[in-house]
Computed example of a mutant assay.
Amino acid sequence: MALMQITIIPLGTGTPSVGDYVADVVQLLEDKEIPYVLNDMGTVIKGEVHELLELAGQLHELPFISGVERVVTQIVLDDRRDVQRTLGDKQRAVRRRLEERSR
């Protein structure tokens, strides 16, 4: 399984706010029951690489459906195949290291 962080940036909307577009992304993920973690700079999703890339295309299209004429989408894939991971594993590992240091 891989992790993908995706950030969708609609351009030319007349406002710096992107909250409605982020809500569209979250709604699609929830409708499809796809596990995700929303953060301040994007959305992290777990899945098989080919499924994540297909999903990225679907998510990229959402602002166009709302009438946006230009969209920039940033995707980061982390495909580690030597271990099984779940969403939040990296965060837990860092917190565990910080706890060990404070002892």
Rank of each mutant, 00 (worst) to 15 (best):
G12R: 03
K46N: 02
T7V: 06
E100P: 07
T13W: 05
D24L: 14
V72P: 00
R96E: 15
L29F: 09
D31C: 05
V83C: 10
E48T: 06
Q5W: 01
F64M: 11
R97S: 10
A23V: 13
I34P: 04
L28E: 10
I75S: 01
E51T: 06
L29H: 08
D20P: 00
P35L: 08
L87R: 08
V49F: 02
D79Y: 10
V18W: 00
K32V: 11
K46D: 04
M41H: 05
V25G: 00
E61W: 07
L77N: 06
Q91S: 07
N39D: 10
D89Y: 11
V83G: 03
Q74W: 12
V37S: 11
I8N: 01
G19H: 04
V18R: 03
T73N: 07
Q58V: 12
L77G: 05
S66P: 04
R101W: 11
T86C: 13
T73I: 12
K32A: 15
R96W: 07
L53A: 01
V71L: 08
I6A: 02
R101V: 11
L3A: 01
E48C: 06
V26E: 04
L11H: 03
V18A: 09
M41Q: 06
Y21R: 01
P16M: 08
P16Q: 06
Q74S: 15
P63H: 11
T73H: 07
R81S: 11
D24W: 02
P16S: 08
I45Y: 00
V44L: 15
T15M: 14
T43A: 02
V83I: 15
D89F: 10
H50T: 11
R92H: 14
E51Y: 04
L59F: 02
R92L: 15
V49K: 05
R80A: 08
G57W: 02
M41E: 03
G67Y: 02
K46S: 07
V26I: 15
L62I: 10
T73M: 12
E69V: 06
H50S: 13
R95A: 15
L52P: 00
D78S: 10
R92D: 14
E69I: 05
A56F: 03
D31Q: 15
I9R: 03
E99I: 07
H60A: 03
V37K: 11
V44M: 14
E54W: 07
T73V: 05
A93Y: 00
Q84M: 11
R97C: 04
V44F: 09
S102A: 14
E51R: 04
T13Q: 02
K46W: 00
L11Y: 03
P35E: 12
H50N: 10
V71H: 05
R95G: 05
L11Q: 04
A2W: 02
Y21P: 00
P10F: 01
L29M: 09
L28K: 12
V44E: 09
L59Y: 06
I34F: 07
L59I: 15
L3D: 00
P16G: 08
S17H: 09
M41I: 08
S17I: 03
E99V: 10
G67I: 03
V49I: 13
H60W: 04
G88H: 08
V76C: 10
R70D: 11
G14I: 07
M4G: 02
Q5M: 13
V49C: 03
N39S: 12
Q84K: 13
K90L: 13
E99R: 14
T15D: 15
M1A: 12
G67D: 04
V18I: 15
F64V: 10
N39C: 10
